[in-house]
């Protein structure tokens, strides 16, 4: 009988057995009250936890479910850490070199492209914390980054190429804070957009392409900002197409 009472509370009895159980309960008010409490309990549980179904799913869970290729990315990061050390050494060498008045300075844009590629390799494999502020707070994100970077920063819409904004973060740059936006496709392919404020007098440039390890970068300087788009998951052609799209959207 007890099992039937449970099934009754769950609404899982056939019509005939249900009628029998109801007749049985009618003669036993204490059991009837107990079973009624079980029903209320079920309602309370559903009322308490069903709202979780409507909550936005954290990006890292979706990435795990869609299975982004983590192992390969971790290997890539290990490569980048080595490269970072090498670049550090190189930077020291460059600093020494800059004292020589006639020495040609490393092109501004190329430095930015490297930093963008390193930022991409550092953050894009992140499953749990790819960004500091998620796309669900895009307005706040854009306002915050604009304020810190010191230039009007925007997150372009890349839906037409199947990329959605994951969110963004603030990074240290050589002459001040830098904004990094991250996008990804439904299948988890990622790209990052690196934006820094340019010192007055940095001249505008055309699109340039750089490749560092497995990361492709398109970069350019336009008015008061420098931009670099990086990805290890997209082909050069795809990236160029997206860079063009971003460039058009960010035109004042």
């Amino acid at each position: 009988m007890e099992a039937d009472l449970q099934a009754y509370a769950d609404g899982r009895l056939g019509a005939e057995r249900k009628a029998e159980v109801e007749a049985w309960l009618a003669a036993r008010p204490e059991d009837a009250e107990r079973v009624a409490a079980y029903c209320r309990l079920g309602e309370a549980l559903r009322a308490a936890y069903d709202p979780v179904l409507a909550e936005p799913v954290p990006q890292y869970l979706e990435s795990t479910a869609a299975r982004r290729p983590r192992a390969r990315r971790i290997a890539a990061v290990a490569g980048w850490i080595t490269l970072g050390a090498l670049l550090g050494a190189l930077a020291g060498w460059e600093a020494r070199d800059w004292r020589r008045p006639a020495g040609p300075p490393l092109a501004e844009g190329a430095v930015m492209a490297r930093r963008a590629a390193i930022a991409h390799a550092t953050y894009s494999p992140e499953v749990r914390h790819p960004v500091e502020v998620g796309a669900d707070q895009e307005q706040h994100l854009v306002a915050w980054l604009s304020k810190r970077v010191g230039a009007r920063v925007r997150a372009p819409k890349l839906d037409e190429v199947g990329m959605a904004l994951v969110g963004g973060r603030l990074l240290p740059g050589e002459s001040g804070p830098v904004a990094l936006f991250m996008y990804q496709t439904a299948a988890g392919r990622r790209l990052t957009l690196y934006i820094r404020a340019e010192a007055k007098g940095n001249r505008e440039t055309a699109f340039r392409y750089a490749r560092e390890n497995s990361v492709s970068v398109f970069y350019w300087i336009e008015r008061d900002c420098g931009y670099a788009i990086s990805s290890a998951d997209l082909s050069k052609e795809e990236l160029l197409h997206i860079a063009t799209l971003v460039y058009k959207q960010l035109e004042p």
């Binding site: 549980l45 308490a48 936890y49 069903d50 979780v52 179904l53 409507a54 909550e55 799913v57 954290p58 869970l61 979706e62 479910a65 869609a66 299975r67 299948a187």
Partner: peptide
């Protein structure tokens, strides 16, 4: 992969009720 993504909200609901707080529940998911 798509079906797993689709099932996340249900996993989260169950996990939340099972372990209580959101962070541990999402860890479990």
């Amino acid at each position: 992969a798509e079906r797993l993504v689709e099932l996340i909200p249900r996993l989260r609901r169950y996990a939340r009720a099972l372990v209580g707080d959101r962070a541990s529940a999402d860890d479990l998911v």
